[in-house]
Nucleic acid binder design. Sequence first.
DNA 1: GATGCGAACGTAATCGTTTTCATGGGGATT
DNA 2: AATCCCCATGAAAACGATTACGTTCGCATC
Lengths: 353, 353
Amino acid sequence: MTATTGKAATIKDVAREARVSVASVSRSLNGNGGVTAETALRIRAAADRLHYVPHAAARMLITRRSNTIGALLPDLYGEFFSELIRGIDLAARARGLHLLVSSSHDGAEDAAAALRAMQGRVDGMLILSAHVDAAFLQANLPRSLPAVLLNSAVTSPAYAVLNVDNYAGAYAMVRHLLGAGHASVALIAGPAGNFDAQQRDKGYRAAMAKHAPHAPITVLAGDFSEESGYRAGREVLALRPRPRAVFAANDMMAVGCLAAFKEAGVRVPQDIALAGFDDIPIARYVTPPLSTVRVSIAELGRSALERLAALLEKTEPLPAHADTLGCKIVIRESCGASLIATSIQNILSTSHP
Amino acid sequence: MTATTGKAATIKDVAREARVSVASVSRSLNGNGGVTAETALRIRAAADRLHYVPHAAARMLITRRSNTIGALLPDLYGEFFSELIRGIDLAARARGLHLLVSSSHDGAEDAAAALRAMQGRVDGMLILSAHVDAAFLQANLPRSLPAVLLNSAVTSPAYAVLNVDNYAGAYAMVRHLLGAGHASVALIAGPAGNFDAQQRDKGYRAAMAKHAPHAPITVLAGDFSEESGYRAGREVLALRPRPRAVFAANDMMAVGCLAAFKEAGVRVPQDIALAGFDDIPIARYVTPPLSTVRVSIAELGRSALERLAALLEKTEPLPAHADTLGCKIVIRESCGASLIATSIQNILSTSHP
DNA sequence: GATGCGAACGTAATCGTTTTCATGGGGATT
DNA sequence: AATCCCCATGAAAACGATTACGTTCGCATC
């Protein structure tokens, strides 16, 4: 045991201990050949004995790689956040990448500051933020830093984006409601500027146009909050004729809407059917359980990381730039469809305008 | 504009541009004096012009500080996870620290590997993991790396630990149930090895001993899953005499238990009262809404980071080593207490054996 | 006018790795 | 037996910052 007292062992210490040069240690430990099996063994032994761990900073400096990717996330909803991180983290670990997280950003400049702070610490970025548009990226994202945008409206082919297929999900749910015998379906919309909300709105309209061309298009305002869902629910009850079904652009609004219905003594699904979007955990526990559209958030995170990893490996700019992730509709009791054999239907992921 | 074409500007480029030495650039930009106001201005100008950002790795190498803290987290429940990260992240950002996350660890060696991988990339660690005990830390955590343990049973004064006051929370809830007129209270326990579960169990027993010394102690097995809560609920119904109230060691079990009661046509709270622990979002939405104990998870994360930051600043070993975070009981309908003016009571955070 | 002193600034060592290039020795080939 | 080549190895140059230590001034003091 040679001087175990000092701080951390460096590559030099290992070299001395194994009686070779630092170059050999480096080569050997990094798996690049050029070392006798015997000396490799001696080196590994010395390394363990000294508890040698390569100094990350030194390696980063010379290698110009941090093996770290950054995730820039807004201040977002519980379940969504944790699932997303889980997906990213799992995929990252599988690839030996570290994950630097910066979440809870409110304003655009808040996000910009965070992005700048990550400069040089990460090899690539995963970005999910409402404030991020092409101009923002132009100004704050160095051209040399690969990035994947999640759920973004950015269309520039210069950036890789990955969206969940809100359109197809909404379309499928509305079609299901119509197919279950509800002749008219109203939509509780999400916030006007929100990309997801817009896509879901489009899906609703498309499904109505296709499968119930003569039914009225009814859209109530909402902002994804439970409160706004409650208000919209009361508006729905005041409508004449009253729609047979309500599709809320997210589950929280559906839950609020359900409260309004209960309060008014309107039964779900007998008097009016209800469906949401997201499949948050609460959806299963309200009474009646809420039919909804499930998005595999973890999958989104995983895919995003894989995509980014691909960008990191190739120096070539990759071809495909916009991708879409499918979702499933989950039929529970609130939509009044008698339970079919399979209560979950897959929706093909398709691209859409 | 001098050679804006190249890759990233280094301190040398700035020095050349401002016609001073690199030492002056470093001093000036880092706020250490020794520079004329005039040259400082020239340097800053040159730096912006070149979009100079100091190379993190180079700085880390010489400084031996990464300004990054690592968070080692198990594979844990949605809301808890996101709130915890939020609290940590907010506090970290306020201090200019970065956050390196490694989550979803299952086994002890999984965690060990993650811990090792973070070596040298972080200045300190936040650790929350069931597999972490004193021996584990001894083996895998370098003595030189400051760390704060969250919700840990480790008692060694060598490590800083921060726990939520499960004991006081459980105690207060059970006392409340007894005070509300329910003469007997049964507990659905958590997994045997779990630290939180143990503390909640102790709180239950202490409250019973103190406020209902003659009532029987009834403990049903559970493992924090909804399923186990359902099973325990059925066991409760078979009990003779049937307890007047059930306290589940977490909300998910309470939800499962509630399902069992509903299925059997037993009304909550009229026939039997029910309470949980954690205040997960679902608790508000089940019917009837669930009384529970709220833990401010974000606060836990924030405190942990502050604590760690303190460790980082002082080289002195800090005195206090174990701390505890209070929680509140949240009274909703499931426990059958008529709603009092304030439905949330604060519980003083006290230390306990 | 010589001396001392402090502020402003530059030179160079340093951090721990990777990587290029040179070197030497030991087969294999001729 | 001479030549060639390959392969294991080592020496040293990067990488980009911080900082200890000199150096050069200008100015006040004696």
